[in-house]
Simulated scan of single mutants.
Amino acid sequence: MPHEMKAPGAGLTALPAPAGDPALLRRIDLAWNALTELPEWVGRLPRLEDLRLDGNRLRDLPDLHGLTALRALHLDGNALTRFPESVLRLPELRTLFLYGNAIGELPEGIGLLRGLRHLAVGGNALTSVPAGLWRLTGLASLNLAENSITEVPETIGRLTELRMLDLGHNALTRIPEAIGDLSNLTDYLYLSDNRFTSVPASLGGLTRLTYLNLTDNRLTDLPAAIGGLTALRELRLYGNRLREIPETIGRLRELRELHLMNNALTCLPASVGDLSGLRLLDLRNNAITSLPGSLTGLSRLTHLDLRNNRLREIPGGLADLPALEKLDLRWNKLDDGDPEVLHRLSGRGCVVLR
Rank of each mutant, 00 (worst) to 15 (best):
P2E: 12
E4N: 12
M5E: 15
K6W: 06
P8N: 14
L12E: 03
A14C: 04
D21R: 13
I28F: 06
W32S: 11
L35W: 09
L38V: 11
P39C: 11
E40A: 15
W41S: 08
P46H: 14
L48D: 07
R52T: 09
L53N: 01
L53E: 02
D54I: 04
R57F: 02
L64M: 13
G66S: 06
T68E: 13
A69F: 08
R71Q: 15
D76K: 07
G77A: 10
N78F: 05
T81P: 00
F83Q: 04
F83Y: 09
P84H: 07
P84C: 10
E85M: 07
L88E: 12
R89C: 07
R89P: 00
L90W: 10
Y99V: 10
G100T: 02
G100E: 01
N101V: 06
L106D: 07
L106C: 08
P107F: 11
I110F: 08
G111P: 05
G111S: 08
L113Y: 08
V121H: 03
G122P: 07
G122V: 07
S128W: 06
A131N: 12
A131K: 14
L136D: 04
T137W: 13
T137Q: 15
N143Y: 08
S148H: 11
E151P: 01
V152R: 00
P153K: 10
I156A: 11
G157N: 12
L162T: 08
M164K: 11
H169P: 00
H169N: 09
N170S: 05
L172M: 10
T173G: 15
R174I: 01
R174G: 01
I175G: 04
L182G: 05
L185W: 10
D187N: 13
L191S: 03
F196V: 02
F196P: 02
S198W: 10
V199D: 01
G204T: 05
R208F: 08
L209W: 01
Y211C: 00
N213W: 01
T215Y: 03
N217Y: 02
N217F: 02
L219T: 07
L229D: 04
T230N: 04
A231V: 09
A231L: 10
R233W: 07
L235R: 05
R236E: 11
Y238E: 13
N240K: 06
L242E: 03
R243F: 01
P246G: 06
G250L: 10
L252K: 06
L252M: 07
R253Y: 02
E254K: 14
N263C: 12
A264W: 07
G273H: 06
D274F: 08
G277D: 12
L278E: 03
L281W: 03
R284S: 05
G293D: 15
G293L: 14
G293K: 13
G297R: 15
R300V: 04
L306V: 11
L306N: 04
R307A: 09
N308A: 13
R310F: 04
R312N: 10
I314Q: 01
P315H: 09
P315T: 09
G317C: 03
A319H: 03
D320M: 10
D320I: 02
L321W: 01
P322C: 14
A323I: 06
E325N: 05
L329M: 13
L334W: 08
G337W: 00
V341M: 14
L342C: 15
C350K: 07
V351C: 00
V352A: 09
R354M: 15
R354S: 14
